[in-house]
Write a protein that binds this DNA or RNA. Structure first.
Lengths: 246, 246
DNA sequence: GTACTTATTGTATATAATACAATTTATGTC
DNA sequence: GACATAAATTGTATTATATACAATAAGTAC
């Protein structure tokens, strides 16, 4: 099952989550300690990634990583870009880190970037191989290793684009959600604000966002109506768009 | 300059061109002949691709391939997807072909897909390493090697998407062009038709499509006005679009 | 019952998309 | 020079979508 790794090929997953307010991303702490005196040489964060194994499809490598991390199956996953610059692992800290691992890693590693969308209310992120895994708002990131800032920004850009084309945002919400949650989600991802009346008008045109006979409970204000997303209805009612943009 | 190749990493370029009627793609003939009796074992087509070299950025590998093929510099180039399924080179013909080359190629080759847009009136495609290189309409393709059908379709899909977001179509036209040419181009790429009045209304909103004091010559009908595209004006007048699609 | 908090709703206006056909201007021919 | 030919060019009415804007409703907490 756990075969040899391919030394020059990895995948990195930009795992997005939404907490009713911010768009967040899962990051893994990377701390290099001095083996003699156990002092910390540096500490920063990486995306969740790993090498592809011999005989493994890259998509499956990404699925494997996500499953290791979250225990979830059927996570929304999309390849968005491949990063292969020859200098992408050559910064000082990164070289120290790679050498400290003593692994079979090539000088020139190509990494295939995926982003995934998860409903973070459904997962308790378990620390992974005794490394610290945490959510960070995309607007308030810690220092990142390698070229992971570039990867993350590209993932975000592609997520924004995709969100304008397909109703993928619901992957980030619980099965039942309120329209205000949807609005906050779109606002967080697209980094803008919408008028609630106009936003709801748009949602009401989406036949695949279906109201339930159910309301929020345990809130100290007017409880909102709950909705579900039906991919089925979406597939049957989606329209083609031939327009082009000025 | 020409170093060792990386055995498990290649790039493939889907080179699009437009001939005033069809969207075309450049393909390279692949003919396997029997070394004994020189009979043809099979003949089909591949995309233009090659292995990445040690120490070479994948983007530069794609640029190198395009330059070898066309002699052009500054070709519009965009990475669109990476194809890494373990079975992508395992079909019978493909295995015969790979073994006949006797090269250092891994069983599992990951290829990074790029598409490029060229003005085919400005290039005479030179046959490449004595292999036959030809334009084919994307609607009438010959048999393709490896997973190149999948790669080509994905490239086309991404080209369509990009065309709806940015004015990249002009890369496929000569410096000076007519509005009818632009319309035919959009129609060919998006596989639809537009009403000329409505289409021109949209174009007239694009301040970066600039009329010249010049008309078509040597045509046996009313000569059309010529236009140029200004990337400069585009960059200065582009708008942000926050809408999302039903 | 009163304060508080968020959910929910409608209308007028501006902008963009669509549907649809007659006229213009060059070339080539007689 | 008149005429046929072929593509280029243009306008208006209608519909659909996007935007701007604020008052009321329905729960909980006290």
């Amino acid at each position: 099952m756990s075969g040899q790794i391919i030394p020059n090929l990895s995948v990195d997953c930009v795992v997005f989550g939404f907490d009713s307010k911010d768009l967040n991303v899962l990051l893994v702490e990377r701390t290099l300690t001095d083996k003699q005196n156990h002092s910390i040489i540096f500490s920063d964060y990486t995306l969740t990634g790993n090498h592809v194994q011999e005989g493994e499809n890259p998509d499956d490598a990404a699925i494997r990583i996500l499953n290791d991390l979250t225990g979830l199956h059927d996570i929304y996953l999309e390849q968005f870009h491949t990063f292969g610059r020859t200098d992408r692992l050559l910064k000082g800290k990164d070289q120290l880190w790679i050498h400290s691992l003593g692994l079979n890693i090539a000088d020139h590693v190509i990494t295939i970037g995926y982003y995934s969308l998860i409903d973070c209310t459904s997962v308790e992120i378990t620390n992974h191989l005794s490394r610290n895994v945490k959510w960070f708002p995309v607007n308030d990131l810690p220092e990142l290793a390698f070229d992971h800032v570039e990867i993350l920004l590209k993932a975000l850009e592609r997520l924004q684009l995709k969100l304008k084309q397909e109703p993928i945002g619901f992957e980030l919400l619980s099965e039942k959600f309120t329209l205000t949650q949807v609005q906050r989600l779109y606002e967080a991802i697209l980094d803008t604000t919408f008028d609630p009346r106009n936003f709801r008008k748009k949602i009401s045109m989406m036949k695949y966002v279906i109201p339930l006979d159910e309301k929020q409970t345990a809130v100290r204000h007017k409880p909102a109506q709950l909705y579900i997303f039906s991919r089925d209805v979406y597939e049957r009612t989606r329209k083609e768009h031939y327009g082009f943009i000025i």
